[in-house]
């Protein structure tokens, strides 16, 4: 697999440097008329049908559950309106979990962005490293989370963990990363980031490949340095992809359950209980399905507001 042929960009070479943005006035809404729209709706039908069946229908059922006082799933219960929500809003553990999830989200984003950007830029280079790395860099991501959890717990084990020993050899005592409440959350965030950064790296690398060399060369001729070129040329072109990745990646990252469940299970003493973990524990350990549903609905609302703000302020200029 050779390096992508960067002399032939994937877009018309004479198109402007900032490609995606089109002003609202130039958008031709009714260009194709009814036939155009019908075709569009036809294209949207399959995904909407699947989402309705798998996501919307169960979600409606969950909202209904949140208005009841159901404990063990499927056991008899009564409609209590918003009482369940009041219970949840008064539970300090709910707010702790929400705060922890905020931290989880930001740190995951920060760590993964640095790793992914660094990797994507290196993947772009020529030479054997980049050539082979394009294949192996995805490995951490293709490992099932079950294995990720076991591998890291084992490597960080205080008795026979290889990382523990490596750090001990240079005089650093790692202690017990998964069971020290001060660093357990950071540890799980690092493990989660290890698992997921390759995905972001591949996406950013793919986006970088759409940056036309001609434009970059033009910038160089104009005497722009690397940072100037990046902010003036590369970044605007990457922006739509980064925007989508950032928004969806963040929402998705917020809802990560398996990594935490399989490493610390929310411990030690609740130090890694993020919102999904709180919902899981409430539903499946404490058997309070209505409360779990109410907490989820509240979370969806919080995320909705956050996403709306994200779209409002970070959307690339000119995109719909």
């Amino acid at each position: 697999m050779g390096a992508p042929d960067r002399s032939a960009p994937g877009r018309a070479p004479d198109s402007p440097a900032a490609p995606a943005p089109r002003s609202r006035t130039s958008r031709r809404r009714r260009r194709g008329g009814i036939k155009h729209d019908l075709f569009g709706y036809l294209l949207l039908t399959p995904i909407l049908a699947v989402m309705a069946l798998v996501l919307a229908l169960p979600l409606v059922q969950a909202v209904l559950t949140s208005l009841r006082d159901e404990r063990v799933i499927g056991s008899p219960s009564e409609t209590v309106g918003f009482d369940t929500y009041l219970i949840i809003l008064q539970d300090p553990a709910f707010w702790d979990a929400l705060g922890r999830s905020g931290l989880w989200l930001l740190l995951n984003l920060a760590v993964q962005t640095v790793l992914a950007f660094g990797t994507a830029l290196l993947l772009q280079r020529q030479g054997w490293w980049a050539r082979t790395a394009r294949v192996w860099v995805v490995l951490p991501w293709v490992i099932p989370t079950v294995a990720v959890a076991v591998i890291w717990q084992w490597m960080l084990n205080s008795n026979y963990g290889v990382i523990t020993h490596a750090f001990a050899a240079i005089g650093i005592d790692l202690g017990s990363p998964f069971s020290d409440p001060g660093i357990a959350l950071i540890t799980v965030i690092l493990v989660n980031s290890w698992h997921w950064f390759p995905l972001a790296a591949v996406v950013i690398y793919g986006a970088l490949a759409t940056v036309p060399v001609s434009v970059l060369e033009a910038a160089k001729v104009d005497g722009a340095n690397a940072w100037q070129t990046f902010w003036a040329v590369t970044f605007p072109i990457l922006q739509p992809v980064l925007f989508a990745l950032g928004l969806v990646g963040s929402l998705w990252s917020f809802n990560v359950l398996d990594t935490i469940l399989l490493t610390t299970g929310g411990g030690p003493a609740g130090a890694t209980t993020t919102m999904p973990m709180y919902v899981y524990e409430t539903a499946f350990d404490a058997f309070r399905s209505s409360q779990a549903a109410a907490a989820s609905v509240l979370t969806v609302l919080v995320l909705g507001v956050a996403a709306a703000l994200f779209v409002r302020f970070l959307r690339p200029k000119g995109s719909p």
Binding site: N157, N159, S176, P177, F178, S179, T264
Partner: peptide, 22 residues
């Protein structure tokens, strides 16, 4: 008990035992 006991479940004590670490 080992420093990371706070994260121990079923498997870890046995591994420590069989490896001669406990």
């Amino acid at each position: 008990s080992p420093a990371d006991s706070g994260n121990y479940s079923w498997g870890e004590p046995q591994a420590a035992f069989n490896s001669g670490s406990a």
